[in-house]
Amino acid sequence: MKKVLITGAAGFLGSHLCDKFIKEGFYVIGMDNFITGDKKNLEHLESHPNFEFIEHDVTEFISIDGPLDYILHFASPASPIDYLKIPIQTLKVGSLGTHNLLGLAKAKKARILIASTSEVYGDPLVHPQSEDYYGNVNTIGPRGVYDEAKRFQEAITMAYHRFHGLETRIVRIFNTYGPRMRLNDGRVIPAFMGQVLRGEDLTIFGDGSQTRSFCYVDDQVEGIYRLLLSDYLYPVNIGNPHEITIKEFAEEIIELTGTDQKIVYKELPQDDPLQRQPDITLAKKLLNWEPKVDRKQGMTITFNYFKTLSKEELFKSEHKDFTSYINK
Rank of each mutant, 00 (worst) to 15 (best):
M1G: 03
G8Y: 00
A9C: 00
A10Y: 01
A10P: 01
H16R: 01
D19M: 03
D19F: 09
E24F: 04
I29D: 07
M31R: 02
I35T: 14
I35M: 09
T36S: 11
T36Y: 04
G37A: 05
N41Y: 02
H44E: 14
N50H: 13
E52T: 06
E52V: 11
I54N: 03
E60H: 05
I62M: 04
I64K: 03
I71A: 00
P77G: 04
L84K: 08
L84G: 06
K85A: 10
Q89M: 06
L91G: 09
V93F: 03
T98H: 05
N100E: 03
L101V: 07
K108A: 08
A110Y: 11
A115F: 07
S118D: 15
G122H: 14
D123C: 14
P124E: 04
P128E: 10
E131P: 12
Y133N: 12
Y134C: 14
V137G: 11
T139S: 15
I140Q: 13
G141R: 10
P142W: 07
P142C: 10
G144C: 13
D147N: 15
D147I: 11
E154P: 07
Y160T: 09
H164K: 10
G165V: 12
L166C: 06
L166P: 11
I170F: 12
V171I: 15
R172C: 12
N175T: 15
Y177C: 00
R182A: 14
L183W: 02
L183V: 12
D185A: 09
I189N: 03
F192K: 08
R198W: 11
G199N: 09
L202H: 08
L202S: 07
G206L: 05
G208D: 07
S209N: 14
T211P: 07
Y216Q: 00
V217E: 04
L227E: 05
L229W: 04
N237V: 13
G239W: 09
P241F: 09
I246Q: 09
E252D: 15
T257Q: 06
T259Y: 05
K262Y: 08
K262D: 13
E267Y: 07
D271I: 06
R276W: 13
Q277M: 08
Q277K: 12
I280S: 08
T281R: 10
W289P: 05
W289M: 02
P291E: 02
V293I: 12
V293Q: 01
V293R: 00
D294W: 03
D294R: 01
Q297R: 02
G298W: 03
I301D: 06
T302G: 01
K307F: 01
S310P: 00
E313Q: 09
E313S: 08
S317L: 14
E318W: 13
K328D: 13
